[in-house]
């Protein structure tokens, strides 16, 4: 067994099999577990996916939204047990893999066409 195969097999039990296909430009709802004072509840965070970083178990998605006129970006490790599930609510049509240009745009300029 090669070294790479051993590494993959070590991480495999932590990898989620039932993930939806998330692409840059998609509007995504993330159900995150939040721990507050010993209690656990689920919080929903919705925004536009502006970047997907691959890397097996280390795969992350960056979700951007405008909250009270302030831009907020959160990066979620998709295989983390703290993320309960992802929901893709809208597929976006974009021509770039990383949508970092959205950071300089607000309102009408920051729109993304829907993929049909």
């Amino acid at each position: 067994m090669s070294k790479q195969m051993i590494l993959t097999s070590v991480a495999e039990p932590h990898i989620k099999a039932d993930l939806p296909d998330i692409c840059p430009g998609d509007t995504v709802k993330v159900h995150v577990k939040v721990r507050e004072g010993g209690k656990e509840r689920v919080q929903v965070y919705e925004g536009v996916c502006i970047a997907v970083k691959h890397g097996g178990i280390a795969k992350t998605v960056t979700i951007r939204k405008i909250s009270n006129a302030v831009g907020v970006e959160r990066t979620f490790p998709v295989h983390s047990p703290m993320v309960e599930k992802f929901e893709v609510t809208r597929k976006g049509k974009v021509r770039r893999a990383k949508l970092y240009y959205l950071r300089g745009k607000v309102g009408k300029d920051a729109r993304i066409k829907e993929k049909r």
Binding site: L7, A11, A58, H79, P81
Partner: peptide, 21 residues
């Protein structure tokens, strides 16, 4: 030394681990 990868701890944090045979 086989190499490094990530694992999640019971608190849900990502931890770097080294795999050694």
């Amino acid at each position: 030394k086989i190499g490094m990868t990530h694992l999640f701890t019971s608190e849900g944090k990502m931890a770097p681990v080294t795999v050694i045979q």
